[in-house]
Nucleic acid binder design. Sequence first.
DNA 1: TATTGTTATACTCTATAACTATA
DNA 2: TATAGTTATAGAGTATAACAATA
Lengths: 130, 130
Amino acid sequence: MKFFFTRRADLPTVASKFELSPAQCHVLHLIEPDRPIPMGRLAEALACDASNVTGLVDRLESRGLVRRQPSAEDRRSKVLELTPAGVRLRSIVLEHMTTPPETLHRLSADEQRALVKMLRRLLEREVSPP
Amino acid sequence: MKFFFTRRADLPTVASKFELSPAQCHVLHLIEPDRPIPMGRLAEALACDASNVTGLVDRLESRGLVRRQPSAEDRRSKVLELTPAGVRLRSIVLEHMTTPPETLHRLSADEQRALVKMLRRLLEREVSPP
DNA sequence: TATTGTTATACTCTATAACTATA
DNA sequence: TATAGTTATAGAGTATAACAATA
């Protein structure tokens, strides 16, 4: 939990480097390149009401990072995909967010590997099962 | 990072169980019982502007969870402390937030211990050095 | 009837700038 | 002059409720 709150305090700082809000960062993270996602599924993944996604996507769309496309199967639904600019920014943001804390050197290379392995196992399939 | 965003999505859910906002949860976490903290230091710990702390504390104070007290050393400054109700709610919230993800059983008891140990080392002194 | 996304409304969070009372 | 906290203001995030189009 301490880990969580520590990173939570960092997010606005990281996000603002790219003039993004924390929530916008989260959206960028959730829309994977070449993997269009319906708006409703995005709302689920964000654990927020669907009505919020409208405005969130509006702002990202007006910055040319995300596109709304009609869904092939259901004419009520729209799917979201990253624009080329969105793909680029996403990868830059992710790179910055994965910059490890300066305290990482406290763990040996072996320990770091073991840590990553355990965290991976904890998180598998917890978000956006294909 | 995936870990972070996963927990980030959980926070509003956990918080709303107690009719708290995510930020209010964070504040409750940061004010330790019997450890008054000046408002300015709270703003630092939250990585937000000092002006936000006013409203944040207003709302917590009007719910009887937090108290403002004049600082002994500097008459400009006010220190924050939890009320008895605040101490109680803090401990309940923290208990809920430390409920491990259901996927924890994927790690053996030994692995869990090792994981906790490593995370502790990564985080030591990163927040609120005494 | 039920569902997807939108709109309207209200409240909270957040930053910036201007203010006050101390230092 | 500088600092701690407040107030005013504006934009973004969030939930609820009501709505249109489609299923």
